[in-house]
Design a protein around this nucleic acid. Structure first.
Length: 931
RNA sequence: GCCCCGGUGGUGGAAUUGGUAGACACGCAGGACUUAAAAUCCUGUGACCCGCAACGGUCGUAACGGUUCAACUCCGUUCCGGGGCACCA
């Protein structure tokens, strides 16, 4: 009987489906464990071999945990709203709802082929109204919340209204900095005034506090896509999808006040198990810095004395300030510019306006600026310093103004040199006059009361001084901006609000979901309005009421889907509290590193808000995160001699002027092109001619991401068809560490396939048939088994699945060598193997006469006895170099071992008559002699 | 430029807290079975040296230096690769 993997896998997949083998209950006496994959966006291209990598890993872990006695939640769903489906609709005229449904079906079929243990009864799709009803509902909870900085948590808007009604906001706003709202046109009012405000004014004020708020903000507008993009969707000034130019534009749109959670998002990183690089990326994104804000008096001919506030992380350099720079957009510019500088400043402002973000980013090193004609006074020594404007100072960060310290800051130094501003040296020898030195270790000079002090220590001293004298204060800043939440798109969640008199009001919960209206018009309605504006009868509710024409970004549905899995069919709540409490945090979350900022931060934010509002009893969604690496493609190239039909082999290509073309990896064997297949591949190449080397056409290669357009995509279906799902699963793991990126290379798969066939032969011999027997296992066989149990359990626990696969190979090789066909041993090996190769393990386990699911079998227990008894070899080293090994009884006392070792011939030779200085025993099984 | 991660045979990669480097697999070479092929099995496979041989020796984890009885592992410097941020004061 042969290893007929096709039949085995088909039968078991059918069986699992029919028996609902992977359905999980919300109550169980077993401890819970939650293993989650980042749910996929169902793109039209289907899965390639890179996609299942993480799913295989999570499946192995989920099955392993179930074997170990946990009640395991391992669900799957689809992130089904999004841009590409809509783009596809525009290009091909197929409605996103239809193409999405089709794509999901394809994905599902491909996933089922690999034998995953997903509980499909819990599937979620973010585009399903039954699901997005609750996305909208959560949005309304966020809309109905504000962040109480005193308590450091979100509260309901009605609590805020209560504060306004009793004390107004004045007492909170100015003296109590903690309560202050940054960058909003805040107005101060008393309780009395609040009560006198009309409805519209009150709503406008509340909007300044809401965690989901509508405001005119600078947004990243992408004309080509006709929509706004979040900061994380813009890379180097172009859109992350499509690479189209992005410009800044002021638009009235929804934002999430994620900045209020900056500190908690940062602190939370300490409690969760993410990789260093992932935490680092989030930390950078949040971008915390601490320092001080300092007020400088500015005198100018144009106006009476003004105050200019700067932000600095280096208050210790205050005596090195040689000039001030404010952002061109800063409101003070027009107030202080002198008559003489007026035209120069205007010219400069025009220049700045003409520059796109892309230009600015491309020319970061370019130094530009203009003197305002005004002078500031250093508040600590009264020195008069010029005030400039320059585009290197950003209006959106800090106060939009800086103090220029050329001897300590590289940009300030270049600016001073460029414009001929004299440099004050406050760090003695540490400044060489040529370039700035940003050290914190220098001892200060030319610095008044902090002379002779180390810079590091002076920071605190100066902050204290400026706070005492009322010219500034300690200040923490974050680079992170609030998250833009409106998209001018059709295929997303509509905002569940109604506008009356321009003010958005939450829809009544019982009217949710606000369904996306049927429409076939996906083109932008112009004017920055999304396609929904085309559905006029939907937008206009009545004379006075209108709907929002934007939709939410894909991040919305993905920010909470992991909560819905706990109770996916609930239509009274987003999920039952008991179910949420039971499943709690995701124990292991596996997915790509590309979601480091967007998805993970928004998920963390939503969970924190829901936690503050009392819906969840945890405030971090993911306990542990694992980023699977990318499987890259191994592309092949051919070289066409320009303007001809001739293709030249790789080594000869430099003799001609050639164009490099991707060629389908499926018609290349190793490096050799199948020229006949190439001619058939595309009509263009039917009459291709080849210039060969050694009678072969050799292709060029490159490792790059798997993509249809590179013709380097390997479809898992084909691999599964040829070798089976179990081989495919084990091979993907065997390829290397889960977290590493690696090219897909089919060569090694034979080794894994051979292993499974070899395993099969422990049960069935081609000639003799079933060779399994019921004999009692001997120590050698038990040693093999127990070594495997120990090793495989250890590495599975730490997600080192590649060494796990090796562990099985070793065990099967050794059992083959021992000609062991004993049920006692093999049965346990199969249980160990289940997570990795579920089909063959389950099949053989049933052939052994077992019933039920192998996942409910008793997990084999490791017994150290068999390892210890068989390892009697002592390695003996001299000065750390291994010289010999000896058999010594393990229970021998240390002095006795010493004696035996020193009498050993080989060791005597190495001792060369000298007596040892020291004898070191390592872990009781290794000896090192120091001479 | 700054921050993070990494660099091990021809190849993918092993090596929990420093303790026999190169497990396992691919590839390659040789052999067995076979008319042949496939499949399967066996042997060898980091470099160099010594010898008829068993045995043995030296070097070797990007480079150099350090700590240690002992370093792929820890520390320092440099080089290379990958990722993140990028005028953030």
């Amino acid at each position: 009987m042969e290893y007929d993997f096709r039949k085995i896998e088909k039968d078991w997949q059918k069986n699992w489906k029919e028996s609902n083998a992977y359905k999980v209950n919300n109550d169980s006496p077993k401890p819970k464990y939650y293993v989650l994959d980042m749910f996929p966006y169902p793109s039209g291209a289907g899965l390639h071999v890179g996609h299942p990598l993480g799913y295989i890993a999570s499946d192995i872990y989920a099955r392993y945990k179930r074997l170990k006695g946990f009640n395991v939640l391992h669900p799957m769903g689809f992130d089904a709203f999004g841009l590409p489906a809509e783009q596809y609709a525009i290009d091909r005229g197929i409605h996103p709802a239809i193409s999405t449904e089709n794509n999901i079906n394809t994905f599902r079929k491909q996933l089922d082929n690999i034998g995953f243990s997903f509980d499909w009864s819990r599937e979620v799709r973010t585009c399903d109204p039954k699901y997005y009803r609750w996305t909208q509902w959560i949005f309304l909870q966020i809309f109905d919340s504000w962040f109480n900085r005193r308590k450091g948590k979100a509260e309901r808007i009605k609590e805020l209204v209560g504060i306004f009604e009793t004390e107004g906001n004045a007492s909170h706003e100015i003296p109590n900095e903690k309560f202050q709202i940054a960058n909003t046109g805040k107005r101060i009012f008393t309780a009395h005034e609040w009560k006198a405000f009309d409805e519209k004014t009150r709503q406008e004020i509340l909007m300044q506090y809401r965690l989901a708020y509508l405001a005119y903000t600078d947004v990243n507008w992408c004309e080509a896509l006709g929509t706004v993009l979040a900061n994380d969707e813009v890379i180097n000034g172009v859109s992350y999808r499509g690479g189209f130019p992005v410009v800044k534009k002021k638009m009235r749109q929804w934002s999430l006040r994620i900045t209020e959670y900056a500190e908690r998002l940062l602190k939370g990183l300490g409690e969760i198990d993410f990789s260093d690089s992932m935490k680092e990326i989030q930390r950078n994104w949040i971008g915390k810095s601490s320092g001080a804000e300092i007020d400088f008096k500015v005198s100018s001919e144009a106006s009476s004395e003004k105050s200019l506030r700067v932000y600095t992380t280096r208050p210790d350099t205050i005596f090195g300030v040689d000039f001030m720079v404010v952002a061109p957009e800063h409101e003070i510019v027009s107030e202080i510019t002198s008559a003489a500088q007026h035209s120069a400043i205007n010219e400069y402002l025009q220049y700045v306006q003409s520059r796109s973000d892309i230009e600015r980013m491309a020319e970061v090193k370019k130094i530009t600026g203009c003197f305002t004609g005004a002078y500031a006074i250093n508040p600590l020594n009264g020195r008069k310093i010029p005030v400039w404007i320059s585009e290197y100072v950003l209006i959106g960060y800090g106060t939009g103004a800086i103090m220029g310290v050329p001897c300590g800051d590289e940009r300030d130094h270049k600016f001073a040199k460029h414009f001929g501003i004299p440099v004050t040296n406050i760090i003695g020898d540490h400044y060489n006059g040529e370039e700035a030195n940003p050290t914190k270790d220098a001892v200060l000079t030319n610095s008044d009361f902090i002379n002779g002090m180390a810079m590091r220590d002076a920071i605190e001293v100066v902050i204290k001084r400026i706070e005492e004298s009322g010219i500034g204060k300690r200040q923490v800043n974050y680079k992170m901006r609030d998250a833009g939440w409106s998209r001018q798109r059709y295929w997303g969640e509509p905002f569940p609000v109604v506008y009356k008199d321009g003010i958005p009001y939450a829809m009544d919960e019982k009217d949710l979901p606000l369904e996306l209206p049927a429409s076939n018009d996906f083109k932008s309605a112009g004017n920055g309005e999304g396609p929904l504006a085309n559905v006029k009868e939907w937008v206009r509710i009545n004379e006075n009421e209108r709907r929002d024409t934007n939709t939410m970004p894909t991040h919305a549905g993905a920010a909470w889907y992991f909560l819905r899995y706990a109770d996916p069919h609930n239509d009274i709540q987003f999920a039952d509290k008991k179910a949420l409490d039971y499943w709690n945090q995701v124990d292991v979350y596996i997915g790509g590193a590309e979601h480091a900022v967007a998805h993970l931060l928004y998920s963390r934010l939503w969970v924190k808000i829901l936690h503050d509002l009392g819906y969840l009893n945890f405030d971090e969604p993911f306990r542990k995160l694992i980023n699977q690496g990318q499987i890259t493609g191994d592309s092949r190239f051919v070289y066409r001699i320009r303007n001809t039909k001739q293709f030249v082999s790789y080594k000869l290509k430099n003799n001609y002027e050639t164009d490099q073309l991707h060629v389908d990896v499926n018609i290349v064997d190793g490096l050799e092109l199948d020229t006949a297949a190439f001619k058939k591949w595309k009509p263009d190449f039917a009459d291709a001619e080849f210039i060969l080397e050694d009678g072969k056409y050799i292709c060029g290669t490159a490792i790059e991401k798997m993509s249809k357009s590179y013709f380097n995509v390997i479809n898992p279906d084909e691999v599964v068809d040829k070798y089976g799902a179990d081989t495919f699963r084990m091979y993907e793991m065997f390829l290397g560490p889960l977290e590493a990126s690696k090219p897909w290379d089919i060569k090694g798969i034979e080794g894994v396939h051979r292993f499974l066939k070899k395993l099969w032969r422990l049960f069935y011999d081609e000639v003799k048939g079933k060779v399994l027997n019921e004999e009692k296992a001997n120590d050698a066989e038990l040693k093999v088994l127990h070594k495997a149990i120990k090793q495989i359990e250890e590495v599975t626990e730490r997600f080192s699945f590649n060494t796990g696969v090796s562990g099985f190979m070793i065990a099967v090789n050794e059992l083959s060598d021992l000609k062991c066909h004993k049920k006692e041993i093999l049965e346990k090996l199969l249980i160990l193997l289940t997570p990795y190769a579920p089909h063959v393990a389950e099949e053989l386990w049933h052939q052994l006469g077992n019933n039920g699911s192998i996942l409910d079998a008793a997990y084999p227990v490791y017994d150290s006895k068999y390892l210890i008894e068989s390892s009697k070899e002592y390695p003996i080293s001299v000065n750390g170099k291994l010289r010999t090994t000896m058999n010594i009884a393990l229970d021998a006392a240390q002095p006795e071992v010493e004696k035996i070792v020193l009498e050993n011939e080989v060791i005597q030779k190495w001792l060369d008559g000298k007596s040892p200085k020291k004898i070191i025993f390592v872990k009781g099984k290794m000896v090192n002699i120091v001479i």
